[in-house]
Every structure is written in structure tokens, then in C-alpha cells.
Write a protein that binds this DNA or RNA. Structure first.
Lengths: 213, 213
DNA sequence: TCGTTAATGAACTAAACGGTACATACATTG
DNA sequence: CAATGTATGTACCGTTTAGTTCATTAACGA
């Protein structure tokens, strides 16, 4: 990114911090934690490496801030999902589809999660504010599952986390393993037609499973 | 790993090479490509860093050799799966369960795949011998799907790659995302009871989907 | 308007890291 | 048993990398 003209290079702490965070999110998602270079992050902003240490303290704290921000965004998006008063099967299909869309819309988040898993979630664990972040996603599904069981259309031997895990697994795989799976099976996971097919399949799978007698 | 007594430090090219490869597999799976240290790999063997360059040429070639070996092992294991003459639904459940078991038995392979996806499969692409490695896994499923459709018990709008992707997604997620998912939802994915539950669920999901009217 | 402090940049440093030069010992074969 | 190539270890090198030092500039309240 080109250095700004000095006259435009005004002081703006909030913007500097935000820009570092945004660029760091990209770089960590692209290169992993160890592969990411502090110098590269700095070069891709309008400020310098010095500011990373000024605002965050170091590479690791910057990475933790990135993680925290990314998970916060996800939570916000999840809370925007409303299955309204759809019949249970339609509601669960809708939740699956919206989750699917969201994953495809935010591949960098999925990549960050992969990176964090390589490190056995050691950084995530240190971000205290992220404990029980799963609750919202599970509670929405819990409500729909309850309705479905009540209406006698859903099986009763699974819980919300089971369902959420199935949906997550399918969605995460699409994005996180697109490169290797695409190569080995000659299927371009990001092509619109393929994506649409997978989206429909996910809905079919979840509904078929839950509604099976 | 402790240095061997000189009297035991015999020359054995094959063993030296194999040991480097085995240790490198561990270290790359634990730390990722950029995070892995050539010196650490060497220290964890009975030989020295010099030998990595002698046998493999460098860090990147060593990593490629690791990838190639890991994928080869997986293929060998896949070819050991036989669904015999089970009824189609039982056969597909069996394939899913064996795939599940295999993933849990080889977490380091799953981690390597994650690592490689972070790098957009750029190294995998260069290992020419791994092209179309997916074929065996797909062809077994293809045969079973054909039988099921013929018997009128399976839906006919999905192909073997669709089914394999669902199974892989679920299995890979268990292992690759155990750390973050476990943390966020308070579920220890590696605990035997949980694992057994997930194994059963996977079978239910796949069979329910394929057999749905 | 002037002093104080938050914000910023350029240059520097020490350590870590991938890779190599060189010397040498072992094993095989003629 | 020489001769020759394979196999191995030690010590070192040049670069990269995270992190720091120090000086400076913009903003803002008194």
C-alpha cells in the first residue's frame, strides 16, 4: 500500500489501530501465525511496525486481538440469523443455508480457525472474553429442535450441539479444505454451480437426518 | 532424542532417511510449515541437520516428501476398506465408520492436510504422483451407490464425490477442529464416549440422507 | 501561546534460522 | 587391501526476523 502524502498523514489513533488489525487479520489468515511477518503486516498498512508494538505489544498479542475480533464478528452475524416461525424442518434448513452462506462469505475467518487449531487453540484459550461463545448458535438450534420434537417430526436422540457440529463440519470443510480436496477430486469447490449444489445437499442431509423415523 | 552410543551409531542410509521423514511428519503436523524448525527436526532424530540437506535437499523438499508419504499411507488404508456384499445401506454406514476410525487414528495426517490448505495446496500440487489420489475412495462408494440405486433404496441425485465429501467433512472436522470447537462448546471431541456418539451419528446422517424418499 | 503528552517514524540490534564448507569415517568392490 | 564413493558430523555463514531505541511531530488544554 502506498505511503500517504504527508499532508494527509494525519494522526488518528483509532484508524491506525483498526487498520493494523484488519491487515493483520488478512496476513495471519494467509500465512498462519509463524508464517506471518510483522514487517509485512506493517508494510501493508499506512503506518509502521513501530505502531504494532505501540498498540498491541507484540506479534502474539496482535494475533490474539485478531482472533478476538474475528470471533466477535462471527457471533454478531450468528445473532442476525432468525428462523422466525417457519415449520421446524424449513427452519433448520434455513439455519444450515445461512450458516453455509456465511462461511463462504468469510473464508479468512475459517482460515484463522484452522491456524488456531494447528496451535491447539492455545491463543484462543487465553482470550477470556470468548468463553462460551458457542451458546448463541446452539440456543437458536435448541429452540427449533424443541419445536420439531414437540410436533413429532424430529428425532429426539440428538441435541443442538450435534446438529451445529454437523452443519459446521460441512461448511468449514468447503472453505478450509477447498484447495486439497479440489485438487485430489478435480472439483472446484468455489465455483458457483458447485457451491449451489453443496448448499442444497447440506439442507437435504440435515433435514433427512432429523426427520428420519 | 538422545544421541546414540558411537558403537551403535552404525551407517544405515535407509533408516536415517526414514527417521528424518517420520520425525519431520510429526514436527510439520505440530507446528505447520513455517513454524517447523529444521534444527528441531534434526535434534529429534539420531542424526544431524546435515542429513536433511543430504537426503532431501532442503526444508521445502523435506516437507513435500512428508506430504507424499502421508497421502500414500492414507491411500493404502483406503484400499483396505471392503464393504463386501453388505446391503447398500449397511455398506455405506460401514465405509463411513471405517473412515471415521481412520481419521481418529491418524490425527497427524489431518493436521498436515490443514497445514497444506493454509498454503493453498501449493506443495501438494507439485507432487505429481499424487494426482487423482481420490479415485480409489470414490470408486468404492460409486459401486455401493450403484447397488443402492439399483435396489431402489438410495436417492439418485448424488454422486460418490458428494458422499465422500460429506463423510470427509464430518471426520476431518472432528480431528482438525477439536481444539477450537471443544473450547467453544465445552465438548471434548476426543473423549471415547463422545467419539462413539459422533461415530454413530455420522452413520445415521449418511444413511438417512441416501435412503430418504 | 506554550507546555505536555499521545502518536509516529527511521534506524538499529540481537537472536534465530535455513543452509553450506569442509573434514572424515565407513563400507563395498576390484 | 587399496581405492573410491557413500554417509555422517562439526563448525560456521549470511539473512531474516521480532523487537527496541531515540528522536520528532501533531494535537490540545491551560
Amino acid at each position: 500500500m502506498a505511503r500517504l502524502d504527508p499532508s494527509e498523514r494525519i494522526r488518528d489513533a483509532a484508524r491506525t489501530r483498526a487498520e493494523l488489525l484488519a491487515v493483520a487479520t488478512e496476513v495471519f489468515a494467509e500465512q498462519g501465525y509463524a508464517g506471518a511477518r510483522v514487517d509485512e503486516i506493517a508494510e501493508r498498512t499506512r503506518t509502521t511496525k513501530r505502531m504494532i508494538y505501540y498498540y498491541f505489544g507484540g506479534k502474539e498479542q496482535l494475533y490474539q486481538a485478531v482472533l478476538e475480533g474475528a470471533y466477535r464478528d462471527i457471533r454478531a452475524a450468528e445473532q442476525g440469523i432468525h428462523a422466525g416461525d417457519l415449520p421446524p424442518a424449513d427452519a433448520v434448513r434455513r439455519i444450515a443455508e445461512l450458516t453455509f452462506d456465511h462461511h463462504h462469505a468469510h473464508p479468512e475467518f475459517i482460515r484463522l480457525v484452522s491456524v488456531e487449531n494447528i496451535h491447539q487453540a492455545e491463543h484462543l484459550r487465553r482470550v477470556e472474553s470468548l468463553r462460551d461463545l458457542g451458546a448463541p448458535a446452539a440456543s437458536l438450534l435448541d429452540e427449533v429442535l424443541g419445536r420439531g420434537r414437540g410436533a413429532g417430526v424430529f428425532r429426539d436422540d440428538v441435541d443442538a450441539v450435534d446438529v451445529h457440529m454437523l452443519i459446521s463440519a460441512y461448511c468449514v470443510f468447503q472453505v478450509a479444505n477447498a484447495a486439497t480436496f479440489g485438487f485430489l477430486f478435480g472439483r472446484d469447490m468455489l465455483a458457483p454451480a458447485v457451491r449451489e449444489r453443496h448448499r442444497r445437499i447440506l439442507g437435504d442431509v440435515v433435514v433427512a437426518w432429523l426427520t428420519q423415523g
